[in-house]
Design a protein around this nucleic acid. Structure first.
Lengths: 125, 125
DNA sequence: GACATCTTTCTACAGATGTAGTATATTTTC
DNA sequence: GAAAATATACTACATCTGTAGAAAGATGTC
């Protein structure tokens, strides 16, 4: 299931707390892009049409909830980026992790640990 | 500069060898998506309009070349994915690198080395 | 119960994208 | 130099995206 950039933002807000109303979702988004209420509703409707969010009515108001797993969704998005953008090369990813200072010390250590672990297990040469 | 998925494929082919003609670019693309010649031309024209590729005519034929740096382009695409899709979390990236077996032993070792290095330098706690 | 306030549902619309066909200009090949 | 093969420039068109307004229905508030 392919999501657009704006849709990812909605999904990310929704994954943080659900079920949620459109209004709540707007509040939940850190990056306040100043979307009109109906803009968010439109996107929710589209997401529901795609089957990635569920919509449930209580009284007059719709409550939304994700129907897809966050990490699988992210994984497949990464998969696509990896193939299309990075052309299957890992170097840019490693550089990104390391040089763009996205890693805290803790994360760095965790990553090293994971790498050692996977090395030990001899996964894929 | 924002590129679409199809445009990334063209760019990746072009970065591999340039200057190149439309015909050559088609040949250069590993994933043969069966695009019509004119489809590729259309995309090249659009890319030129965006200013990311240069077009130079020799005789009747246009030769194209990238005008943007591959790694900067990739970096900024990753930046966007990181913000919009991953919502600023690194965990999915680490998992992707490790669990999706994208790393060869060599790459894994290289990555560990890079991590140690960056640790030593104490970049961003 | 009339008015203000939300919500929902529909409709809209411009620009981006994927995908190419056509007509025309050029070059190559006998 | 006429026919065949190429390349270019234009045009086209359905979808997807971002963005929302308007109309109509439901609720809250005195």
């Amino acid at each position: 299931m392919k999501l657009s950039e704006a849709e990812w933002q909605i999904m990310n807000a929704l994954w943080k707390k659900y079920p949620a109303t459109a209004r709540e979702i707007i509040g939940q988004m850190e990056t306040d892009n100043g979307w009109a209420y109906t803009t968010v509703k439109t996107m929710l409707t589209r997401l529901a049409a795609k089957g990635v969010v569920g919509e449930e009515k209580r009284g007059n108001t719709s409550w939304y909830m994700p129907l897809v797993d966050q990490s699988s969704a992210r994984k497949s998005a990464l998969e696509t980026v990896f193939d299309r953008v990075l052309d299957g090369t890992v170097a840019p990813l490693m550089n990104f992790l390391i040089e763009e200072r996205k890693l805290s010390r803790k994360e760095r250590e965790e990553l090293i640990r994971m790498l050692r672990e996977s090395e030990r297990k001899g996964k894929k040469t």
